[in-house]
């Protein structure tokens, strides 16, 4: 192990089972990246989308529980989803769900060992953004038509 040059490295040391010291690797984090870049921006946006979609699942549970509870409970849920705040939340969730879906598809593509060079990463990044926009618009077109 090399001589420690930064005090912060003290928290990044560990020991192997035989007692020898190792320098733990530090993964890149939010403060070291330029978030306007396609690569890091898309990555953190995908994580954010996952968190938002997880919270949004509460709406799904509410909708199903209300449907099972009866017409009155269902009407209350529908009233919220039809309100300005509800529509705003659902519109956001639609975009977030599609984004997480397409970004996830991009991750699966990477898992096959493909598309790692920078031009390909930028290309699939733009495809993800365009597909999210198209599918979100399409979803709301269907929603408005079937209203």
């Amino acid at each position: 192990m090399s001589i420690t040059e930064d005090a912060r490295e003290a928290v990044m040391t560990g020991r192997r089972t035989d007692g020898t010291r190792v320098r733990r690797p530090l993964s890149p984090h939010l403060q070291v990246y330029d978030m306007v870049q396609m690569t890091s921006g898309m990555s953190i946006a995908n994580r954010g989308a996952g968190i938002a979609w997880t919270i949004g699942m509460v709406f799904l549970v509410w909708w199903l529980v209300a449907a099972a509870a009866g017409p009155q409970a269902f009407a209350n849920a529908q009233w919220f989803f039809g309100s300005f705040l509800g529509m705003l939340a659902l519109a956001g969730l639609t975009a977030v769900a599609w984004f997480h879906t397409f970004a996830g598809l991009r991750h699966l593509y990477w898992d096959f060992g493909k598309g790692y060079d920078l031009p390909a990463v930028h290309k699939t990044g733009y495809i993800t953004l365009i597909a999210t926009g198209v599918m979100t618009a399409l979803t709301w077109l269907i929603a408005i038509v079937s209203w």
């Binding site: 449907a67 009866g70 017409p71 269902f74 009407a75 639609t94 769900a97 599609w98 879906t101 996830g104 598809l105 991750h107 699966l108 979803t139 709301w140 269907i142 929603a143 408005i144 079937s146 209203w147």
Partner: peptide, 24 residues
């Protein structure tokens, strides 16, 4: 995630197609 690809596609589009539906 692979299982959720078709399931999410089906779910979102199905719900979008039922916005005007009654409780029944």
């Amino acid at each position: 995630s692979m299982a959720l690809l078709p399931l999410t596609l089906w779910f979102i589009l199905s719900v979008a197609g039922h916005t005007g539906a009654t409780h029944a």
